[in-house]
Amino acid sequence: MSTESDYGIPVREIGSELVEKLSGLMAFVVTGIFLVPIGLLLVTSVKSRTEIFTNPLALPAEFQFENYANAWTTGGFGQYFLNSVIVVGISLVFILLLSSLAAYALVQFDFPADNFMLVFFLAGFMIPPQVLLVPLYTIMNALNLLNTYYSLIFAYIAFGLPFSVFLLRQFFVTIPDTYAEAARMDGCNELQVFFRVYLPLSMPALAAVAIYQFVFLWNEFLYAIIFITDDTLRTLPAGLMAFQGQYSGDWAQLAAGIVIAVTPTVIFFLLFQRQFMRGISMGTTKG
């Protein structure tokens, strides 16, 4: 195969072939490790309550699809799902809008605080949400926002801004200035340039940001359990936790709830894997 083999020492060749085979095998074994718990989850979700104890590894004797129906209705997952859609949906729209506006300002205008503002937004990178737990709770409490959708939405937008501003700014610099100039010649004001030229051109970057943030927000747990105390307002991760408290001995029911909770991000990921990967590589190699 390789050019070296012409001069090759046979032992070495066999050795490298063996390494190649073994490493290929390893890649598959690892795939197995990643997939087995997921498969187990799916199987458990259609078992009956007692089968879990009597036959932990076996397939169910009869598929109990009513586990899903029960989780959705009596388990309250219908409501949790709706809450998640509302909170995550609103947060996403605002993250995209606010960060692209800010990124546009950073790229298109020269102003004295230009560099400062960039650093100011990037500094947010250095503050993980976990650190802000106590003060943010205090602020939400003072503003009387605890136990409302707003508390989560405001926090989520704030957490999402630094990365999104950074990524979109990276993308905006690659858009040639001539496009904006041409639009301005045609009488567009800045807002129109932004909405008619930059946004349409930035769809790939916006998609990358949206997908990345969607996965993060849909799965966010810490703030979801602290800010929301009313069961009817809980998002899925917090709802799942409450559900476990209630049904924790009933693993089949819980597994069905878990499948409902994770399905949206998995589907989203499978549909938009390319954009997702793109987001990742934009975030690393250019940072």
């Binding site: 300002a105 230009d114 937004f121 650190v131 602020i139």
Partner: peptide, 24 residues
């Protein structure tokens, strides 16, 4: 005009990220 573009983000960013960070 840059403030028009920056302001919306700052309205969220300041009270819910910068101030809490100092608030710790």
């Amino acid at each position: 005009p840059h403030w028009l573009f920056l302001l919306p983000a700052l309205l969220i960013y300041l009270p819910f990220l910068v101030i809490p960070a100092l608030g710790i």
